[in-house]
Amino acid sequence: MKAVVLAAGEGTRLRPLTEDKPKGMVEIDGKPILTHCFEQLAELGASELLVVVGYQKEVIIEHYGDEFAGIPITYTHQREQAGLAHALLTVEEHIDDDFMLILGDNVFEANLADVVDRQREDRADAAFLVEEVPMEEADRYGVCDTNDYGEVTDVIEKPDEPPTNLVLTGFYTFTPAIFHACHLVQPSARGEYELSEAVDLLLRSGRTIDAVRMDGWRIDVGYPEDRDEAERRLQDARGALDGDGEDEASANAVDTE
């Protein structure tokens, strides 16, 4: 399964961290956000990385070249910041089967494999990793509603009055049907071609979208404090793993006295 990584953003809210680099190249725990994304997609068995670049694209291209951990990389260029649906259309000619999509400014320690498995097993038209957030924060995200079967029934981008606190996390799987929907999307009030609108068109055409509840955590790195929080969590997770290793080594040690 191919993987699309959206990495064209400028990251104005992350300044000064993005004054000389795109936000996907901001380092967290010693490596760029994109490297964290690529590593996880490699673990999920990605056959090719389709990376959508834009702002200071040369920094990304020069850093990664044409492959990552043996996985070929193809770059496409989003020439204007016109929304996620607009960005996704830049890879259309490279996709002919189910694919993964990850937002390149998110850091995950979560059950991404469950989303991929759901796509393969159910042959849904899409599967989304979703999480519950405090109700007062839901208006910052794409909000979704589900039915009793765990299928998405509605998606609203940053609503003034969210109907639920279940939000999209930035990891998805799709069939190529999403591209036709993206072509039909009209600019939103903020002048962007929203991915949530394309998803709504899929739903209205009778397509099935499964919601997979997140087990773990993710950080949408939009501000410097988000970067700091993601770094803290990754370091805590690594420390916990190191501690488990030390405990196991101690338990298996032979007392020679």
Rank of each mutant, 00 (worst) to 15 (best):
V107L: 12
T76V: 02
D236S: 15
E137V: 05
A249V: 03
L84V: 13
A46F: 04
N252D: 09
R218V: 09
P224H: 04
D210I: 09
D236V: 14
E10W: 01
E194T: 03
K57I: 06
E131Q: 13
V107N: 02
G142W: 03
V155N: 03
L234F: 10
V199P: 00
L34F: 05
D117K: 15
I178R: 03
S47H: 05
E194H: 09
A249Y: 04
I73G: 01
L34G: 03
V51Q: 05
R213I: 09
I95L: 11
L166Q: 02
G11K: 00
M1I: 07
R140C: 06
V155Y: 08
L34Y: 05
G243K: 10
L101G: 00
F171Y: 10
A126N: 03
A69F: 11
E67L: 05
L234G: 06
Q56E: 13
T208Y: 01
A230D: 10
E62C: 07
P162K: 10
I95W: 09
D247P: 04
V115W: 06
L166Y: 02
L168D: 00
Q81F: 10
E27R: 14
T173G: 06
L17Q: 12
D242Q: 15
E157V: 15
V143R: 02
A138M: 04
K21E: 14
E132K: 13
G170T: 01
M214L: 14
D215Q: 12
P32N: 07
T18P: 06
A230F: 11
Y64T: 02
D148K: 04
E132L: 11
V212S: 06
V155H: 04
P159I: 03
L129C: 00
T74Q: 09
P134K: 03
A198T: 00
L202D: 01
D210G: 08
A177D: 12
M25C: 09
L6R: 02
D96Y: 05
P163G: 03
L89V: 08
R118W: 08
K21F: 05
T153I: 07
R120G: 10
Q56G: 06
E194P: 00
R218H: 13
V212T: 10
A124C: 08
P16K: 07
D255S: 05
D96A: 12
Y55H: 15
T153C: 04
L6M: 13
D200N: 07
E137R: 14
E109C: 02
E151D: 10
T153R: 07
R213S: 11
G245F: 14
E157K: 15
D210C: 09
K158G: 06
V51T: 05
R13F: 07
R140D: 06
R13P: 09
H94A: 14
D236G: 07
L6G: 01
F179P: 14
I61R: 15
L168T: 01
Q40G: 06
A181C: 14
E39H: 11
A42M: 07
K57H: 13
R140F: 07
E248N: 11
R190V: 15
H77D: 03
T12H: 09
L195E: 00
R13L: 08
N147F: 02
R118F: 07
V91I: 12
G70T: 08
P32L: 05
Y64L: 07
Q56H: 12
H77I: 04
A85L: 11
A249L: 07
R118C: 14
E151M: 10
D242T: 15
E19F: 08
G104P: 01
A126V: 03
P72V: 02
R15Q: 15
T208V: 08
